[in-house]
């Protein structure tokens, strides 16, 4: 199936170049790390054969669209397509510039779980078919069911199919979760306040403020991030309060905009479950305003819309 997807993507990209519908195509290519295929910008028709798709293509390619001027072909699964909608609504890219190649998504693999399952042996190659994948290293080979190794956000995914596209490469897949699930957030909400603070600070203890979570996020396109102000208004060290401030404030900036693609958590070099911060705000947006980000171009952004009966108990 993945092989089929890859061939299909190459075919479409080739056709788009031939028909002169696009100037560039954004997708993934095979690199040297099987868990992190490399985002690639194709500008010549002869390079389309570099394109691939597999269950580790788990960044959010919308991140590469911000402010571009060309006519762009781009592959997008459910969460990426929703981020593209958000990008269009927020005037970061124009719909007319894009040729969106929709990918029905079966979910992405959690490489940390896979590494743990092979006792941290070095994995050099991954082969996959529809239901299974095989990891191959120096002198070992092991097969697993995909279902047992999906990322947490994919297990809870409510929109695996692209919500916006010009062409879709396969039949839509069935949706895993009917409605968003927030059990992990409820657990934290129910903690007494002191325990909650301790719990969250403990999660962030290893943060090195590399900002990979921010930079990999398509929502974080501010020309100057609040942590990069030349006259800082909070500390830049790894003091726990400052680190916490960064994560909480970043989450607030993403309220009502996050599509839970999970890229922030995937790239964290120290394994912080970063999703929980924005997920709390996704939960509030859903429960209070029945809102999920990026579902349609007709829907005004959450904070740009006003209804008389909006929740206002906090006033």
């Amino acid at each position: 199936m993945m092989q089929h997807y890859t061939e299909k993507i190459k075919e479409i990209a080739k056709r788009l170049f031939e028909e002169e519908k696009i100037d560039i195509f954004i997708g993934y290519e095979k690199g040297t790390n099987p868990f992190f295929p490399r985002p690639t910008l194709i500008s010549k028709i002869e390079d389309v054969n570099k394109l691939i798709w597999n269950s580790n293509c788990a960044l959010n390619l919308c991140n590469y669209l911000t402010g571009r001027k060309e006519r762009i072909g781009i592959i997008a699964n459910g969460c990426t397509s929703r981020s593209i909608v958000t990008h269009i609504l927020e005037n970061q890219i124009k719909r007319e510039q894009l040729y969106i190649v929709g990918i029905p998504c079966e979910g992405m693999l959690d490489y940390r779980k896979i590494q743990a399952a092979v006792d941290n042996k070095e994995i050099l190659e991954i082969k996959e078919n529809e239901k299974e994948f095989k990891v191959i290293g120096d002198g070992f080979e092991e097969a697993f069911n995909k279902e047992d190794f999906l990322q947490e956000n994919c297990l809870a995914c409510t929109h695996p199919n692209p919500v916006i596209y010009d062409e879709i490469i396969a039949e839509p897949v069935s949706t895993r979760a009917a409605r968003p699930e927030y059990e992990d957030i409820k657990e934290i909400e129910e903690m007494p306040i002191e325990k909650r603070r301790f719990h969250i600070q403990k999660l962030l203890e290893r943060c090195i403020r590399c900002y990979a979570c921010r930079n990999v996020c398509p929502l974080c396109y501010c020309p100057t991030c609040f942590v990069d102000e030349r006259i800082p208004w909070f500390g830049k060290s790894i003091d726990p309060t400052d680190t916490l401030t960064f994560h909480i404030l970043r989450a607030f900036h993403c309220a009502g905009r996050c599509t839970d693609c999970g890229a922030c958590e995937r790239v964290c070099p120290v394994g912080i479950p970063i999703r929980i911060f924005i997920k709390k705000l996704n939960k509030d947006a859903f429960e209070i305003f029945s809102w999920e980000a990026g579902l349609s171009l007709e829907q005004k952004p959450l904070f740009a819309a006003y209804k008389k009966d909006d929740y206002d108990d906090f006033l």
Binding site: R38, P39, T40, L41, N63, Y64, I208, R209, C210, Y211, A212, R214, N215, V216, V267, P269
Partner: peptide
């Protein structure tokens, strides 16, 4: 071309 994929985070340097 080399720099296209880079997201300019601090992982490599840190």
């Amino acid at each position: 071309e080399i720099s296209f994929p880079c997201i300019n985070c601090g992982i490599c340097t840190y």
